[in-house]
Design a protein around this nucleic acid. Structure first.
Lengths: 189, 189
DNA sequence: TCGAATCGTTCATCTTGACGAACACCCCTG
DNA sequence: CAGGGGTGTTCGTCAAGATGAACGATTCGA
């Protein structure tokens, strides 16, 4: 969860439920997780019960033992069914008329992971300046053909192809055929 | 940073540099950030110098004051470019031959967020039992036509349509046309 | 040149998290 | 019905984090 704005809920409650959920997800006992993490079983018990305010080292050890990204433990959940019809999502501004990105999913106010539908026409390649460090973009080409990836060395994608690249360097999306469509997942790690 | 695997570097060093970098990025004094976060300025000083092992509450308060996502303070990790050609990814087992899911991205070893490419033929709908609570699935239809969503009330999708639904209830993917293709993002929140 | 203000650091004190042993509880077995 | 192995909990002790005041260093203006 983002500290800055977003989830205003106290992180300790979230951590408590996250720890318990992730532990039960992999079907381990409290004692076993505590042993793997190198923390006292009583400590983990208290954390899962909501009392306690773990140190970073403790929480880190637990995230390693549970094989869960660190930040994930401090991230509330919120799932509902949501449908966005083709072309109905909020379009993202684009200088070129031959590139339209539709925002499909933006997780809580400030996203850790956004999902876009991109439809592009051959023309000026869409160049993006580097984003924040820690951003990764995943692109799956649905239709057409495109050059995608880091600006210095883009990759030619065909339908079904997938590419992931760091978002903190300049990157590009250049359609090579009319009606090129792609799904883009941008996540802050 | 991912706790599980990934950056094996001790989180405390990362936190130290992150705190200092983010503070200087917005040009605030140590005392001012400490005041906004409601922590002692001595505490912040020690944290930035690398000594200390902050509690979650302390780090949370600082992340709020600095307007930085919580997990980002503990996140070195630099991603690399990765490409998977159509049909080359690891296919996921499926009882029915008319449903193939290709795993495109599984974040560090064990995923909190997986990306699949699904290609399906009309026939037996693919039904999934409920997963753990906290799972959300996002589907963007690339080609064809499909019924997708929670089992009791699936939604008919056309190319470009998007749907998100909780993964902790029974859900379904039923192709209505030959060569139906979709991108599926499954995330554990 | 003095003084005021701000910077970041260091120190003694107190609070609090982490620990391990002991505990109550449940399931299964002999 | 005892008893062993497993679960998760509670409690006293100790180390460690958080605190505020005091400190030296720096800048700026009278």
């Amino acid at each position: 969860m983002t500290g800055g704005s977003g989830g205003s809920r106290a992180p300790l409650d979230v951590i408590a439920t996250s720890l318990q959920r992730e532990r039960q997800r992999i079907g381990l006992s409290l004692a076993e997780v505590a042993r793997r993490a190198g923390v006292a079983k009583s400590t983990l018990s208290q954390l899962e019960s909501g009392s306690g305010n773990p140190s970073v080292e403790t929480l880190w050890a637990l995230s390693v033992a549970l094989n869960v990204p660190f930040g994930q433990l401090v991230q509330p959940q919120r799932p509902t069914v949501q449908v966005i019809r083709a072309g109905e999502g909020p379009a993202v501004a684009s200088e070129q008329a031959d590139y339209v990105a539709t925002l499909l999913a933006s997780c809580p106010p400030n996203a850790r992971r956004d999902i876009y539908l991109i439809s592009a026409q051959p023309g000026n390649p869409r160049e993006s300046d580097p984003h924040m460090p820690g951003v990764v973009e995943h692109v799956v080409l649905s239709a057409g053909r495109a050059l995608v990836g880091v600006a210095e060395d883009p990759v030619e994608l065909y339908p079904g192809d997938y590419i992931a690249y760091p978002g903190d360097v300049a990157h590009v999306f250049k359609a090579l055929e009319p009606d090129t469509v792609a799904v883009l997942v941008s996540e802050h790690v």
